[in-house]
Structure formats: structure tokens, C-alpha cells
Simulated assay, not measured.
Amino acid sequence: MLLVPPFTEDSARAKVRAAEDVWNTRDPRRVVAAYTSDSVWRNRSEFVRGHDEIVAFLTRKWQREHDYVLRKSLWAFTGDRIAVRFQYEWRDDEGRWWRSYGNENWEFAPDGLMRRREASINDVEIAATDRRLPGPAELPVA
């Protein structure tokens, strides 16, 4: 299945899953490959443009968000746009756990690369015992 616009429900769901999978690698170089070279992001209050800024942003993010694990779900889609809901859990340098909730709006180029990403995110401190998203090392082996 080609994951390019215009999206169907199946291709939109597959695109969301592909994004979740690549973000869970926590590898900025792998993540940035899904974006156009001039991609524009709004992440919380930060504005990022282009591959170099995206890689720098993600590198900083994952240096402070330890044991990061993300889950995304399709909210809506049409043409060249997809909206997702997500949550992720991570641990800070002091060992406190956080769950971050948010929404993203995505816009894609004809080749399927994301050219725009707008993310609104809120963080809630949680107890380690309240975690509900298993990390990559905790996922069952298929």
C-alpha cells in the first residue's frame, strides 16, 4: 500500500502506525527521513524548519526524555491531511515519570513526506506504577 495522499482510512491508519514506529526508535535521522527538507513544525511553543533543525530538536528532546515510548491514534483524515491524538511516557533526569498528551495536525506533500506538523502537548507527572505504555524493552516478543 502506498502511503501518499489522497489518504483512505486504511492508508491514513498505516501512516499513523508508521509514524509511531519510527518515533519510537528515538533516532532523529530515521525520523527526519519522513519529512520534506523544508518541513515546518510547531511543537508546543517551539517553531522548527527543515531537516537540520528537526534533527537538533529531536536530539535535545530525547536527551532529556529518557525511556520515551509513544502511542498514536488516527483522529481524522482528508486529502493530504491527517489529525492524530497521542500520548507518550518518559522519565526525566531526576527519575520522575511523565505522561504527555497531545494532538497533531499533519500535511503531506504528494510524495507522502510530511511538510507540516503542528503539535499541542500537555504533560502530567505520574507515578512509575501508573505507567500504562510499555517501553520497547518491555514489549512482548512476537
Score class of each variant (00 low, 15 high):
residue 2 L to S: 15
residue 3 L to F: 08
residue 5 P to K: 00
residue 7 F to L: 06
residue 8 T to R: 05
residue 11 S to T: 15
residue 16 V to I: 11
residue 19 A to Y: 07
residue 20 E to A: 03
residue 24 N to C: 03
residue 26 R to C: 08
residue 26 R to H: 08
residue 33 A to I: 06
residue 38 D to R: 08
residue 38 D to T: 08
residue 38 D to A: 07
residue 39 S to R: 01
residue 41 W to E: 02
residue 45 S to E: 15
residue 46 E to G: 04
residue 52 D to P: 02
residue 52 D to T: 11
residue 54 I to N: 10
residue 56 A to G: 11
residue 56 A to H: 12
residue 57 F to K: 09
residue 59 T to K: 11
residue 59 T to E: 13
residue 61 K to T: 11
residue 64 R to I: 14
residue 64 R to Q: 13
residue 68 Y to A: 09
residue 69 V to Y: 03
residue 69 V to I: 14
residue 71 R to Q: 10
residue 74 L to M: 09
residue 74 L to T: 09
residue 75 W to C: 10
residue 77 F to R: 01
residue 79 G to C: 06
residue 83 A to E: 09
residue 85 R to D: 14
residue 86 F to H: 05
residue 87 Q to C: 12
residue 88 Y to F: 14
residue 88 Y to T: 06
residue 91 R to G: 02
residue 95 G to V: 01
residue 96 R to W: 06
residue 97 W to F: 05
residue 98 W to P: 05
residue 100 S to D: 08
residue 101 Y to M: 12
residue 107 E to Y: 03
residue 107 E to P: 02
residue 109 A to I: 02
residue 112 G to P: 11
residue 114 M to H: 04
residue 118 E to K: 10
residue 118 E to R: 14
residue 121 I to E: 15
residue 122 N to T: 13
residue 123 D to K: 08
residue 124 V to Q: 08
residue 125 E to I: 07
residue 125 E to W: 04
residue 129 T to G: 09
residue 129 T to E: 15
residue 129 T to D: 13
residue 130 D to N: 12
residue 130 D to P: 03
residue 133 L to M: 05
residue 135 G to Q: 09
residue 136 P to G: 07
residue 137 A to L: 12
residue 138 E to W: 06
residue 140 P to W: 03
residue 142 A to P: 15
